[in-house]
Design a protein around this nucleic acid. Structure first.
Lengths: 342, 342
DNA sequence: GCCGTGCCCCAAACCGCTTTGGATATCCGC
DNA sequence: GCGGATATCCAAAGCGGTTTGGGGCACGGC
């Protein structure tokens, strides 16, 4: 069922039918009525491929999953972020094009994606401090918004980020205020910009409290339960052991809790834990109103929605100056943190 | 940089250039060489929109996230499954089109997706027993493969599934063999086909052991940590309490462990837990060689790869009869299960 | 009676590629 | 020298929409 046969069945030209369906003025109300009814009845939907070729708009946004190497860890926040973005795209008629780019082929991959015309814009995730993708995309002249920031990027670009530094300073200060002096940081991968900002916030608060940071109490790794468990287990066995942990993800915190309890210690009394919580739908911090961990909380789904909205306005007005948006994190008090043991 | 200008710059027709690039015979080796070199040099990449319109193939596969309602839980296995599928699509030149379909608009949504020609095939996830989508897609004549099965579907269709019944029978038998008599099942949502099969396996093993199933020991819900915690906590406080749990996901098992330890009980001694483990990259069952839970294990990423491969062969030969593939689950022995307490 | 003015509608060009159906040139055997 | 392969190449017709640039017609004013 294409435009042509629909037009024929109505005894009209394709031009008129097209204009009628797209709300152009040059068509009488009666005709428009008739056309719309017929389209509805015959179940007409424009062929996106043709539409896209004619209009030059792909009506799709690219999201890239970096690294398709077999044992790569898929970022767990990815699903929620994309679901959030989808909520924004849907009503606007955009679809998500997911591109899995094998490590190493990235430059070529982005180039091809841009030239292929499959997408009208791109969302960049998990940037590194000097992320080459930003300059690349600027050069390719494809609208994009970065979820996160790339500290050392030269060009100005649109981004939406959580205030990582401030959130982690807040979390750490909470612990120093409680009298903790040996605080460990279980952070995300060291080459991620967000992890660097989180570390900065941590150091800032430690310094403000006049505390030294023990290098052996800082760890960077993929944010898994096992990382939290293994790192905490090791640190707790050492002497002196930390009395508190700041962790970059709820999964890490769950691992820490496992190590803590395995040692016969109690969380919130013997060892305090403050975590960042991405508000993942399938991994909530306890129940509503009864959090399990003291946490900084910033729902990533919300960020997906907001990032998508920024990108859509950017696509609508590509020449507008880049926009920036900083999302704050809530601070939630839970039973996992308490005064430092004497 | 389109075909036309590339052809002009070479003094050839677009026909010849197209044939040269696509490996058709009607072109001399010298010309082909020249064309390929120029394409490389000028950074030519065919416009997918036009290519797609001309060939009729979209070079994209649709994956649908059901439900975009604000508080919907995004299935955590989704990310790994899609990453796996992407590994298969990539080398074949296919991209993933992610469609977020709001609850209720599904029928219309699939119809539009099919007619729009954006995708060459579809992967259906999380089917319900009498899933209407299967008949719908068959009617729409769009190649698709179901991850899971729909028990009551009438038509024959391609599917790939884990052997849920057998896996859960195996898990349950392990516990009955250990002498457990009161075993609880913390299952996925009751309307999911996979959850029904898992329950069937559970009941089968209980019956084989001559054990009655207490209705209050069966729970269906979203597979979150909190569900595991709350359900186990409640059950352990009741009298008689179960001595063992079978759980449908690692996250649930983590919640159960939390409840167990909160009660001062020890997992594997006072309370046994056997879980299913989807092998998510960011949520592993302990470390390699040192599992945390006794588990049935079937990596969902692998299933993504395999499902994608099935779909691609189906697209290549749409008239072949539907294919079926059953994936077994491993059984992994861990410290979370032990003899029933006396 | 003529002309300007809206109102509706349409034919045809175009988006960038593939593919069909020749066209031209070369080369072969006889 | 000539018919018929064979090897190369190309013009043009799609694919299914949008958009440009009119064209006919009725109406009103002079």
């Amino acid at each position: 069922m294409n435009l042509k046969s629909l037009a024929e069945s109505l005894g009209l030209s394709t031009t008129t039918v097209s204009r009628a369906l797209n709300g152009y003025p040059d068509v009488s109300a009666a005709t428009r009525e008739r056309v719309c009814a017929a389209a509805q009845a015959q179940g007409y939907a424009p062929n996106t491929r043709a539409l896209s070729l004619a209009t030059g708009r792909a009506m799709a946004i690219g999201h890239v999953i970096p690294g398709a190497s077999r044992h790569e860890i898929v970022n767990p926040i990815f699903a929620d972020f994309v679901a959030g973005a989808g909520e924004t795209y849907g009503p606007a008629g955009y679809e998500i094009l997911l591109s899995v780019m094998p490590e190493g082929t990235e430059e070529e991959g982005y180039r091809r994606l841009a030239r292929s015309g499959r997408v009208d814009g791109l969302v960049l995730q998990a940037p590194r401090p000097a992320d080459r993708r930003i300059d690349l995309l600027t050069e390719l002249n494809l609208p994009f918004v970065v979820h996160g920031r790339a500290t050392e990027a030269e060009a100005d670009y649109s981004w939406l980020d959580m205030d990582n530094r401030r959130a982690f300073a807040r979390a750490t200060r909470h612990l120093t205020d409680l009298g903790h002096r040996r605080i460990a940081l279980l952070n995300g991968p060291a080459d991620m910009d967000f992890a660097i900002r989180r570390a900065a916030g941590f150091h800032e608060a430690m310094e403000a409290a006049g505390l030294a940071v023990a290098p052996e109490h800082i760890r960077h790794d993929q944010m898994t339960e096992f990382f939290g468990y293994a790192a905490a287990r090791e640190m707790l066995a050492a002497d002196p052991a930390p009395t508190a942990f700041v962790t970059a993800a709820l999964l890490i915190a769950l691992g820490v809790r496992r190590a803590v309890e395995e040692q016969g210690l109690r969380m919130g009394r013997d060892v305090s834990v403050v975590t960042h919580d991405d508000g993942l739908s399938y991994l909530t911090n306890g129940a509503e109103g009864a959090p399990l961990f003291t946490a900084t909380h910033a729902p990533v789904r919300e960020m997906g929605r907001a990032t998508a909205a920024m990108l859509l306005t950017r696509i609508a007005a590509p020449d507008a100056p880049p926009a920036h948006r900083m999302m704050p994190a809530d601070f939630v008090l839970g039973p996992s943190s308490g005064p430092a043991p004497a």
